[in-house]
């Protein structure tokens, strides 16, 4: 079980180290095959990579006048370059009790792997990456850094994480927004088991302060399909009550609730121009990330043109 593994990792015994190594390897395997460049920057300025020409206006720095074009056309044009900024990405991983659900692979394991993969990916791009583990409050925060040790630090924190508490994503997002600092990429990895209005308010706050936000909604297959047949006593996590019920009789209503929840989050994210990716833990992580990042890169490039 994930909780047993977590307890062992807390003491850094050989198995813990092996687990870190495996995560590292796993993240690397996932990253390979899709990394071809760096993140697009949303800012344009005078940088290395040419973006476009525009007519000179008074006040422009004459250093960027394209003299060759002036010589050919006798018109003064300014060369604009895409800004090469150092991406500041913040991984925001839910470590609440609900994330421990999952028989073969818990949602937390899946999310942690995803976070490690993204961290590795971001570091490969020489961007700075940080990590925040949260439940009802922020449990661990690593500020973004480009140092080589940052990834190992992130992995250690991931293996040390203990999921026992409730979650309050909305509050945490508000808290993150209020910290200020440079605008960057916020990657939220969670099952989002909280009030959708509260979550969307938090996300809205992040967008408001200028962050680019990515939401990976991690769900288990059981939670999406509710395939249970026998009479089951559902013991609620995160201090929720228990319920003895014939699952077949509830399946229809449950799935409606889940779909309604997903739909509200999806629509909210869409309105806030936030990428919302729902993943299921039995889906291959490399597939999820590849398809998403390729799509994102394509969109960004299309938007830049």
């Amino acid at each position: 079980m994930a909780s047993t593994g977590l307890t062992k990792r807390k003491y850094l015994d050989p198995q813990v180290l092996d687990s870190i190594k495996r995560l590292d390897l796993r993240a690397r395997l996932v990253v390979e095959g899709f990394v071809s460049g760096m993140h697009d920057s949303p800012y344009k300025g005078y940088s290395v990579e040419f973006a476009q020409h525009r007519e000179y206006v008074q006040g422009d720095d004459i250093r960027f006048v394209d003299w060759k074009v002036y010589a050919k056309s006798d018109r003064i044009y300014i060369k604009e370059f895409e800004e090469e900024t150092n991406l500041k990405a913040m991984l925001f991983l839910d470590q609440s009790e609900s994330m421990t659900y999952g028989e073969a692979r818990s949602k937390f394991d899946y999310g942690a792997t995803m976070a490690a993969s993204l961290a590795h990916l971001i570091q490969q791009q020489h961007d700075s990456v940080g990590l925040t583990l949260f439940d009802e409050e922020s449990r661990c925060t690593l500020p973004p850094s480009t140092s080589r040790a940052q990834l190992n630090t992130i992995l250690h924190h991931l293996t040390d994480a203990e999921a026992t508490r409730k979650t309050k994503i909305g509050d945490i997002l508000h808290e993150l927004s209020d910290r200020g600092g440079r605008k960057g990429l916020i990657i939220v990895i969670s099952d989002l088991f909280d009030d959708p209005e509260s979550i969307l308010a938090g996300l809205r706050h992040l967008r408001h302060v200028g962050h680019d936000v990515l939401v990976f909604h991690v769900m288990d297959r059981d939670e999406v399909e509710f395939p249970f047949e026998r009479m089951t006593l559902f013991k609620g996590m995160e201090q929720m009550p228990e319920l003895l019920v014939d699952p077949k009789s509830l399946r229809e209503a449950y799935l409606k609730e889940v779909q309604s929840f997903e739909e509200s989050i999806r629509k909210g994210c869409q309105a806030l121009k936030i990428d919302y990716i729902r993943t299921i833990t039995d889906q291959g992580l490399e597939v999820v990330l590849t398809s998403y990042l390729a799509k994102r890169s394509h969109l960004l490039k299309g938007g830049r043109r």
Binding site: E97, K107, M237, P241, L243, F261
Partner: peptide, 10 residues
């Protein structure tokens, strides 16, 4: 069965 999505179930 310990259940995470208890809110939806409830």
């Amino acid at each position: 069965l310990p259940w995470a999505a208890m809110e939806f179930l409830m």
